[in-house]
Simulated assay, not measured.
Amino acid sequence: MQVQDETKPYDSINVTPMLDLAYVLLVVFILMTTASVQGLSINMPKPSNKPSTEKHELKVVQVMPGGALLLNGVPVTATQLESELVQAKQRDPKMSVAIKGDARSQYAQVVTVIDLCNKLEVSMGLVTAKIGT
């Protein structure tokens, strides 16, 4: 019995696997571009190069891990905090509040302080720290 060795060169290249890959990449691209995450639109303030010469009152509110509130280092309740902020705003309408939330504190307490500042129409900022400091 004789085995015939028929080694002919290919006349054409099979492009089916390449087209399958192209279609898969096209579908992935379409899905990734249309499934973009919707977020909030926020207008961030622009930094100023000149230092401010105006001095306004600053209150620091700390939210402790147990939910306790400190106003400039003094323990206060939520109602005391509100009355202190109202009095401070009457003295200086452009006063501001810095909110320091401990990493172990409940987020609901921080939101309560933010809501209070929004209700009183007081400018506020959240104090953050770099990781590792």
Score class of each variant (00 low, 15 high):
1 M>D: 06
1 M>Y: 04
2 Q>H: 08
3 V>F: 11
5 D>K: 08
7 T>P: 02
10 Y>P: 12
13 I>A: 11
14 N>H: 09
18 M>G: 06
18 M>V: 14
22 A>C: 10
23 Y>A: 07
23 Y>F: 14
25 L>S: 10
26 L>R: 03
31 L>P: 03
31 L>R: 00
33 T>N: 11
34 T>I: 14
37 V>Y: 12
40 L>F: 09
42 I>G: 03
44 M>F: 15
44 M>L: 15
45 P>A: 09
47 P>K: 07
47 P>T: 04
48 S>W: 03
50 K>T: 13
52 S>G: 08
55 K>F: 13
55 K>A: 07
58 L>Y: 06
59 K>P: 04
62 Q>S: 14
64 M>C: 08
65 P>M: 02
66 G>S: 10
66 G>M: 12
66 G>I: 04
69 L>A: 05
69 L>H: 01
72 N>E: 00
73 G>P: 04
74 V>F: 06
74 V>G: 00
75 P>Q: 07
76 V>A: 04
79 T>S: 15
80 Q>E: 15
80 Q>R: 08
80 Q>K: 10
83 S>F: 06
83 S>G: 05
84 E>T: 04
86 V>W: 03
88 A>P: 00
88 A>I: 01
95 M>T: 02
96 S>W: 01
97 V>R: 01
99 I>R: 03
99 I>W: 01
101 G>S: 10
102 D>F: 10
103 A>W: 06
105 S>F: 02
106 Q>C: 00
108 A>S: 08
108 A>W: 03
109 Q>T: 13
110 V>H: 01
111 V>H: 09
112 T>A: 15
114 I>K: 05
114 I>D: 02
115 D>M: 13
116 L>S: 00
123 S>G: 09
127 V>L: 13
128 T>S: 11
128 T>C: 06
130 K>M: 14
130 K>C: 09
133 T>Q: 12
